[in-house]
Write a protein that binds this DNA or RNA. Structure first.
Lengths: 119, 119
DNA sequence: GACAGACATCGACCTGCGTCAAGATAGACA
DNA sequence: TGTCTATCTTGACGCAGGTCGATGTCTGTC
């Protein structure tokens, strides 16, 4: 699987040479990774990820997230959808409420790509 | 020209903040970090970073980078400028040629933010 | 069955970004 | 000094993306 460009063994990643710096990225790999970064490259979505991740039990209800921003509910819903579509957030509907949870694997892979995460 | 010192220290921008999953990110912190991610959130710039980092001696000339893409030289120059302005790439002009080098601290701090790694 | 609340989707507006062609700048060399 | 080469800057175009108001869908309650 070509995903190896992203999910490189974290133990091999050293401070001096992260996967990104180890060898030239192929155009295909770059095209696959860029959307993940683009999804994170927004202040609102960055805070959403952080809010969800640091929330109790690691998951947060949309109603909680709405209150943290001066934005309308559709806008928050849109940002959550973007994060969900790239795989950074998982969705779970329980009754009337919808809960979001951070996908640690996806986030970890990105960290490995940039700097190796483990130092 | 007097506007050569546009670039900010990417290290300062990130170093202030704890990992994404530890506690909610402030709006100010998110606004500082998002531009860094946005600079990386482009397939061309992702490959440029990778090409520069994995090049001999860790630095690459613009002429080398142009050949790796089906884009015009001004477009490559534009992308390099974006990466330089957020502090992800360092610039050095020697004679006619301009060499770019990856700022490892900036990349490492981004990775720490995403992966929760403590330095 | 009808109503109310939580969340998603749709359509529209406006800003920002990637790209290119053309011109400008700076160092090297005769 | 003048010319050549390598690179950067400017201006313009088209498209993608963030935001909002209005509307739709689903679930639980009376």
């Amino acid at each position: 699987m070509s995903k190896s460009a992203v999910s490189v063994s974290a133990t091999e990643a050293v401070a001096c040479c992260s996967p990104l710096t180890a060898e030239p990225l192929s155009a295909a790999s770059a095209a696959r990774i860029a959307p993940l970064l683009k999804a994170l490259a927004d202040p609102v979505r960055l805070r959403l990820m952080s809010l969800v991740a640091s929330h109790q039990d690691g998951e947060a209800c949309v109603c909680d997230l709405n209150d943290a921003f001066d934005l309308t509910q559709p806008t928050i819903s849109h940002h959550l959808k973007v994060l969900h579509e790239v795989g950074l957030l998982d969705r779970a509907k329980r009754g009337v409420w919808v809960y979001y949870r951070v996908n640690d694997d996806a986030l970890g892979d990105l960290a490995s790509l940039l700097g190796g995460g483990v130092r």
